[in-house]
Design a protein around this nucleic acid. Structure first.
Lengths: 364, 364
DNA sequence: ATGAAAGCGCTAACAG
DNA sequence: CTGTTAGCGCTTTCAT
């Protein structure tokens, strides 16, 4: 026991397989652990010469910081939590791609949770992520009303950024798109092509069956798109009868039913705005079943560009949103909050209307 | 300093916000940390009565194990790494959904890395994940040849399961589908509908420009699909001229070019098998540009069911693969390896041919 | 059956 | 400018 001081020296790690620790680096560089930490971490005071010796030692030993240890010490991890409805949905998948890559480039891991737009699952997910001491989270909120869990998480230690959907009156910044403007432009295009009977199929997590009136829990992006469409309609003195507006949850058959119901109205609309890719697919399916030709009998514009929209015959016109940029922006905003403590302000990104063949001109 | 023993007792954690530690639970239950750990962890010997007292204490304090501390102690995390080409691709997105959910239900986090099917990126990703001490990884290998990095990771501490693609001669189990059988059935359907000029567009990460001959780095799934198609062709005494077979990397324009080139051959095939969704989209686009109608001029079968395949006019026939089940199986296999030490064997799942309208009957 | 105590690898407050 | 040292919360011998 008297020789304990030398124990370190006498027990080099067994086998070359075991990864080097900070202590190993310090020893090789002939400095203390503290100095090595300072040199590597780039904080505190260290001579240039020492710094280099330590760096060299780290390189030869192929040293990599043990993140578990750091996380434990710091009481928080290098993980960013992402709470979204469903990663297999193409919008979220694209956003996730951007988020993951941006996080990786900034040294963060990304932990993804699917909620299927269920509020209870979301609350639990946020709770769990806080317990896991994530550095921050990016949340696509499933509801515009219930936000206590977001308040709590966003206000406290855990930083938060909302994606795709805003929530009024809470101090959490959001990255969204100009959904209202996008919808307005889309409807304006219909009108310019002389359509006057214009229908809307809207996806909402909140709707439990297809309905005409706006469901309570409609999320900001859905609401804004309806709002924008109504604006354009009103500006042209056009009406939006209840029979031409349907809300539907994200279920293939229910979407088809909603679209079918609109297209079976008398008179039926000659143009339809679909608030997302899933809706557009449902409209396509409904048209098929009703033997209506998109681009000839029914004009169609969908939100969100996807790989197939330009490949179909007719090619589908879309309101394109900068999904990758949104994901990137969300991460940057969040990381700035984590590191700098800045609150950061909301970001709203522009949409682009891509006019293809699905919007035909309705001769007068 | 003499009173140090009592320090613990005298300093309850500041504020109720700070999460409870094991020590807090132990104190409330009037046992030592060790006993509390045993009771909660369900190992070692503990009286039933003590166990219950500890459980109750944990419940009242809302205790949750600090994973960072556990990870540090254990030298490994509760994280499963997933290395795939691109999470925004619909096949991988669906697989990821299943993987994430299954992992979550088993208490694992999922860390996803995108490689864009680039070998160098993949090698780095595997390396990084090992350094992060993940419990195991699920890899979609970008190449059938270069596998030293997988060998090293899979053989050592880090457990590994391959997804979607096999690699010969390495002791790492894989979850795949019967791509060969699927392709065979697809071509047999073409033949049953009296098609004799059948073309193939194949996606390979390895191809640098579209080519007729099989590129060296073709991944097992791509190779098997070609193999299956050739089998069916051969069984019917049919030929596959070079002009009707193209390999292309995953780039929209290059895919369209490949499809266009096949459809411009003289004579041109009346049926085309697309090895994945992206290829199908490219074929659709090429047909559009060449003014050829799918389902009338060109029969089409694609691998992988997607939301739009049934909604198009004509509805597209597909070789459906059980993507969710594949993801689930991969996680289960991996976790069994992690926990039980079992090696686990390869899993090959069946495909289902869904016959819709894109395969018309070619009257003799 | 239970408790005391020794670390896992890292950081930071403090002393030189 | 550098070293000493004390933990972060958990697990796991080794005593009792």
């Amino acid at each position: 026991m008297t020789q304990n001081k030398k124990t370190d020296e006498e027990s080099p790690r067994a086998g070359p397989s075991r990864p080097a620790r900070l202590l190993d680096v310090a020893r090789l560089a002939k400095v203390s652990r503290a100095t090595a930490a300072r040199a590597l971490g780039g904080y505190g005071l260290v001579t240039e010469e020492t710094r280099e010796r330590v760096a060299a030692a780290a390189r030869t030993l192929n040293y990599r910081l043990n993140e578990a240890a750091r996380a434990m010490r710091a009481g928080r991890t290098q993980v960013i939590g992402v709470v979204l409805a469903d990663i297999s949905n193409s919008f979220f998948a694209s956003a996730a791609r951007a988020i993951i890559d941006t996080c990786a480039s900034l040294g963060y891991q990304t932990l993804i949770v699917n909620t299927d737009d269920d509020l209870k699952t979301e609350v639990e997910a946020v709770q769990t992520l806080m317990e896991k001491r994530v550095a921050g989270m990016i949340v696509v909120p499933s509801s515009p009303d219930h936000n206590e869990h977001l308040q709590k998480a966003g206000a406290g230690e855990g930083r938060m950024v909302l994606l795709d959907r805003r929530i009024a009156d809470i101090p959490v910044s959001a990255v969204t798109t100009d959904d209202r403007g996008g919808a307005r432009e889309a409807v304006e295009l219909f009108i310019a092509r002389r359509h006057t009977r214009i229908g809307l199929v809207v996806l909402t997590a909140a709707a439990t069956s297809h309905r005409q009136s706006e469901p309570r829990g409609a999320v900001s992006s859905a609401r804004d798109r309806v709002l924008g469409a109504r604006e354009a309609l009103a500006a042209a003195g056009l009406d939006l009868p209840k029979a031409w507006l349907r809300y539907t949850p994200n279920n293939p058959q229910m979407i088809i039913d909603a679209a079918t119901s609109i297209l079976s109205a008398d008179p039926r609309p000659t143009a339809i705005l679909a608030t997302c890719e899933e809706i557009a697919i449902g409209v396509l399916a409904a048209c098929r079943a009703l033997n209506l030709a998109v681009g000839r009998d029914v004009a169609l514009i969908s939100f969100d560009e996807s790989p197939w929209s330009g490949a179909l015959t007719p090619a589908i016109s879309v309101v394109q949103r900068p999904i990758r940029e949104m994901g990137r922006a969300a991460v940057n905003l969040l990381v700035r909050q984590i590191q700098g403590g800045e609150s950061g302000r909301d970001v709203e990104m522009p949409t682009i209307l891509i006019d293809r063949e699905s919007v035909f001109d309705l001769a007068p």
